[in-house]
Each structure stands twice: as C-alpha cells, then as structure tokens.
Amino acid sequence: MDEMIDATDRALLRALQGQGRLSNAELGARVNLSPSACHRRVQRLERAGLIREYVALADGRKLGRPTLVFVEITLSAQADEVLDAFEREVALIPDVLECHLMAGQADYLLKVVVRDADDFARIHRRFLARLPGVAQMHSSFALRTVSHTTAIPI
C-alpha cells in the first residue's frame, strides 16, 4: 500500500474516515490541495479500491437497538459445504452486523445488534438456532462500549 499512496493520500483517507461528507473544497483545505486536485486524488483512491464505499453511521441507541451481543459459533464440521451453507444463511440475518471466520476456539464470531435480552431470544430462536452445521453457540452481551471506531490507522 505504501508504494501506491503518498502522505497527501494518507491525509485524505484519514480526513474522509473521520467525516465522509466533506466537500472537495473542505477536504482540499485540510490537506493543502485545490478542490480539483483533491477530487482527482479521491477518484484515484476510489478506483484503486482504497476507498471502498461511503456510509452513514447510524446510532443504534437512538434507533432502539442499544445492545450488542457477540456470538461465538462452533460448527460440527469444517468441510467447505458446511462453511458455505453457514455463511450463506448467516448473511440473510438482518440483525447480524458482522460475521467473521475465526482461527482459534470458535469457528465464527458474530456481532449482533438487538433491543434487549428478549429481542436477542427472538433472534436466537428464529435465526441463530436454525443455522446449518452449528454444534455450539456462546453469547456474550456487551455491557458498555469503551472504544469504537471504523477508521483504519493510516
């Protein structure tokens, strides 16, 4: 990556990770570029795949989904067809924010957003307990988020 981008590109990426709706004029002013030069560089970063997409980060608390649950899942087998079936089905669960294939004790780690314990029980019964190939499942409720960012250190 370092060969592809210079210090100005890194500054652009840091600024956009912090505030993705900056205009080219505002962004250029932050990194000492003209708006047109800034626009060209951002387009190049997008084409290179360094900027994947732009999103709005919604506030789960204000939207009635204040609780995060981390679910560790161990599958009954490691065969490709078991992994593929699990991944296809888990991707259809709207409450699952993230699903990671893991190395270590569990095969997958899910990050699930819920209203409360009753809501998680509903999601567990309706979706999680029906996922294919699941041998074990352990759930942990987050009591408080101490640190959270979507920004990758650049």
Rank of each mutant, 00 (worst) to 15 (best):
L97E: 14
R47Q: 15
R44M: 06
R41P: 02
L110D: 01
R115A: 14
M102I: 02
V90L: 03
S139Q: 11
L50P: 04
G49T: 11
N32S: 14
N24H: 12
E81S: 12
A129R: 10
A117N: 07
T74D: 13
L16A: 10
G104A: 07
R65D: 02
T74R: 11
D118V: 02
D84F: 13
A79N: 11
S140D: 06
R126C: 04
L63D: 06
A85V: 01
L75C: 08
A77L: 03
D118A: 12
M1S: 14
E46T: 08
A29I: 00
T145N: 07
R41H: 02
R40D: 07
P66E: 07
A106Q: 06
S76M: 09
G60N: 05
D9G: 09
V69G: 01
L45E: 04
M102T: 14
R144Q: 14
P66H: 08
R88W: 10
I51K: 05
G20A: 13
E46F: 11
L50H: 14
R144S: 12
E53V: 00
M4G: 04
E3P: 08
M102Q: 15
R65S: 05
I123P: 01
L33I: 01
L128D: 04
R144H: 15
T8F: 10
H100R: 14
A106T: 04
D80W: 11
T150P: 03
D95N: 11
V134Y: 12
E72Y: 15
V113H: 06
E46R: 11
S147E: 10
T67F: 12
G64Q: 10
S34G: 13
P35C: 05
F70N: 04
F70E: 05
E26T: 00
N32D: 15
G18T: 00
R41S: 01
F70Q: 05
T8A: 08
S139K: 06
F86K: 00
A25Q: 13
A29K: 08
L33A: 02
N24K: 00
L57M: 09
A15D: 02
G64W: 15
A15I: 01
G28K: 04
A58D: 08
S36C: 03
L101A: 12
R10L: 01
A121C: 00
V114G: 03
E89I: 00
R52D: 13
V71M: 07
V90M: 02
Q105I: 04
R47I: 02
R14V: 06
R41T: 00
E87M: 08
A77F: 12
V82T: 15
H124M: 02
F120M: 08
L83Q: 08
V31R: 01
A106L: 01
R125I: 00
R115N: 10
Q136G: 06
A77T: 08
A77S: 15
V55Y: 09
V31W: 08
R65M: 11
Q136V: 03
Q136P: 04
L68K: 05
M102N: 12
D116I: 04
M1F: 15
H138K: 15
A58R: 11
F120Q: 04
Y108C: 05
R61N: 12
A79S: 12
A129D: 09
A77C: 13
T145P: 05
A7E: 15
A48L: 14
V69A: 08
F70L: 09
L68P: 00
L12T: 02
I93W: 14
A117L: 11
G104F: 11
C38S: 13
A85G: 03
V112W: 06
G28W: 09
